[in-house]
Design a protein around this nucleic acid. Structure first.
Lengths: 298, 298
DNA sequence: TTGTTTGCATTCCATACTGGAATACTTAAA
DNA sequence: TTTAAGTATTCCAGTATGGAATGCAAACAA
């Protein structure tokens, strides 16, 4: 069993297509077909059902999948352990960031990182947290900086995390802004500007309302907090935003319930980090420690 | 990187020889040379130093070694996960047993096992516990039934264990047998018939004497408890033996210090068990539970 | 030093595998 | 039925793999 066949198998499964897998692996489509056929032959069982338009894993294929990932992770680790330039920080570094972290945290990290490690080719992708988890699972990136999920799958490893306290907010001229300590019941009378139901923020807020037996009126305009902030500032409803985003276009609502989320950098358990990834994490940890001690010292 | 090259690498390392590895893997010596050369080529580094008579791992080879084992374990697990006859108990089962367990426990296990699972080809090897740990590490067997070591390396997994209480003993006509409650100091005056210094039993007894600031007079005749028992019965010295081995050729010495060891069945962490191994462990657990409840119920 | 032995490397050759190009086949949708 | 999309098959060239015979180097003995 060689790693190339397993890689072919995983790529086909992840991309859902032989021809796309071929392209990704810089091979022709027949070559991919043959690699998989050879793997199936060695294992004495079919792994992928191609009898329909859309390919599907067979039972055996599904059983093989986690093992194949583990084997390739370990092959990756072995190669890393043998790389002689164990001090150099260079090569490609694939990372994923949520839009919010990308806007509010990445700049100061990458600024330093680029200056200190100019030999690293950064490959940065933006996506929401749950898409990030999926992509990480497919090994599309080495690190992801996202909102940590309370329902985080095992298999991920948190390298760095920090709290991101949030507040209820509305436009200064919004009726809610005039109330001293608005209750959830009063919030429930106005439209809520929240990101979609897959996000941690939505889940936290919706649980608050559920526990109070209230119905949330969510407008689901966008997942970009910047846009939500803008719409909130215009007066289209109330929202829940990180305190760090508050400015004079918004008025904080003194709602009794504290809302918070945790941001962090995650990697895959069982997969060693490159020097570049370690270097970036060091910078992240330093910068976030600084940020917290500054704001905490005030 | 394919599993065959890694297997060649490990076999060479474990056997310390290309030609023996070739024999083990049913290949010719040049074929093994070429497999390793190809692996070294792929990794861009030499793994084994053949410049001297006795081969040695290079730095890179030593770094690769644990990864190679892990990869092959996972390949093994993947193959097991795909084996379609997940209910059948058959094939080869390689186990290791200490001489003592082989004599006093194995018969009743294997008797049942052979009757219930006649399709399994048992491959049984006897060796002392520390040799057993080494062989397990080399993946020479799936299970080992031995004295559990207090300094057990990580990487092993205990599947079943039971206490094996021991007593000090001497021949009925030995001077010590005439004393009511002999102290360690008195034992120290006579030769001790103990297994060699690598065994758990020796370590336990020698620690007792060390703590009492006494010098042990070990005769080191053999590691076979049966032989030690015989020599003790003849009156050549005192010994420490499992209570289950006591009979009227021996007199127990009522020494104050309780001595005990733990026997058990171990496997390798990170390596799934075959159905045959699982079936044997089930029998072992049942039989040992029975044995203990019988003796405990008296 | 000089055989001699032991043990890995090299060479040669036949065979098997691998990948690309062209093409055939299959399925689902129009 | 036609068409489009996607995988399998065939053919061919280049490469890799294994066995047999042989070469070469290190350790050992005389």
């Amino acid at each position: 069993m060689d790693s190339n066949s397993l890689k072919a198998f995983l790529t086909i499964v992840d991309l859902g297509s032989f021809s796309e897998a071929a392209e990704t692996l810089h091979l022709t489509q027949p070559a991919i077909s043959k690699r998989l056929a050879s793997l199936e032959n060695q294992l004495g069982t079919s792994l992928i059902d191609r009898s329909h338009r859309k390919i599907r894993l067979t039972t055996a294929g599904a059983r093989l999948l986690p093992h194949a990932r583990k084997i390739l992770d370990e092959v990756h680790n072995a190669r890393l352990a043998l790389s002689p330039d164990s001090l150099k920080v260079e090569g490609k570094l694939q990372i994923i960031a949520s839009h919010h972290i990308g806007l509010h945290h990445l700049p100061k990290w990458l600024n330093r990182f680029n200056r200190e490690y100019p030999m690293v080719a950064l490959d940065l992708q933006f996506m929401e947290s749950d898409a990030a988890y999926r992509q990480m699972h497919k090994r599309s990136a080495e690190l992801a900086f996202v909102t940590l999920s309370d329902t985080m799958e095992s298999g991920f490893r948190v390298f760095s995390q920090w709290p991101d306290p949030m507040v209820f907010a509305a436009a200064p001229h919004h009726p809610l802004a005039k109330q001293d300590r608005p209750a959830l019941k009063e919030l429930a009378e106005y439209p809520a500007l929240l990101p979609d139901t897959t996000t941690a923020t939505y889940r936290v807020v919706s649980r608050l309302f559920l526990e109070a037996n209230l119905v949330l009126k969510p407008q689901m305009p966008t997942n970009y907090l910047e846009t939500i902030k803008m719409m909130t500032g215009v007066g289209l409803g109330w929202s829940v935003l990180p305190v760090t985003m508050m400015d004079d276009t918004l008025a904080p609502l003194k709602v009794q319930h504290p809302v918070s989320r945790v941001l962090g950098g995650i990697g895959l358990a069982g997969r060693e980090l490159s020097n570049a990834a370690k270097a970036l994490l060091d910078i992240v940890r330093q910068e976030e420690r600084n940020t917290r001690s500054e704001s905490g010292g005030r």
